[in-house]
Design a protein around this nucleic acid. Structure first.
Length: 156
DNA sequence: GCCAACGTTGGC
DNA sequence: GCCAACGTTGGC
């Protein structure tokens, strides 16, 4: 049984359009530097899981597309790249601290913006809508997934 | 640019 | 192990 997730990306870095344009519509999800988010990738996420592709830190934050988990985890090479903003001097190649996995865009949707998400009572307990939430990867319930992908984004 | 909220660090 | 200081996230 598949699980569902919401993954935040800054569209200046990787947007849903970038993912769709990528080979096989697939991008390596670099830059996760939070243990809880890493553990979701390592322990919870399975190939085929559904992903809500969320644009954050941008003029119109919100869900911009549907994607799927396309690989298991492997070490994130940017942690060893001194020129990368994600470089982590404390992480050693023989004991990588940070992981990534591949995310494959399924389709771009209309922008389901944060105000609309907040205005939908059934979504009130979505983790990403909770006050102060900063996690870049959060689990999504099946009910929320169905409402968002099946109703709010139906045909859009 | 501001700031609330949260995670991490490091002294003790 | 506690907790203050600090850095980051992310909406506005």
């Amino acid at each position: 049984m598949p699980n569902y997730w919401l993954m935040k990306s800054e569209p200046d870095e990787v947007s849903i359009d970038d993912a769709i344009k990528a080979p096989k519509h697939t991008v390596a999800w670099t830059g996760v530097r939070n243990y809880q988010a890493r553990n979701f990738m390592r322990d919870g996420m399975q190939v085929g899981d559904g992903v809500l592709f969320y644009h954050s830190s941008c003029p119109e934050p919100g869900i911009a597309g549907i994607a799927r988990v396309a690989s298991g985890t492997r070490p994130d090479p940017t942690q060893f790249d001194k020129t990368s903003p994600y470089y982590d001097a404390a992480s050693k190649p023989d004991a990588p601290r940070w992981l990534l996995l591949d995310v494959q865009a399924v389709r771009k949707t209309r922008l389901l913006g944060l105000p609309e998400l907040r205005d939908t009572p059934e979504l009130a307990d979505m983790v990403v809508l909770k006050r102060g939430n900063r996690l870049s990867i959060t689990p999504v319930s099946e009910a929320h997934w169905k409402l968002i992908t099946g109703t709010l984004l139906a045909g859009a």
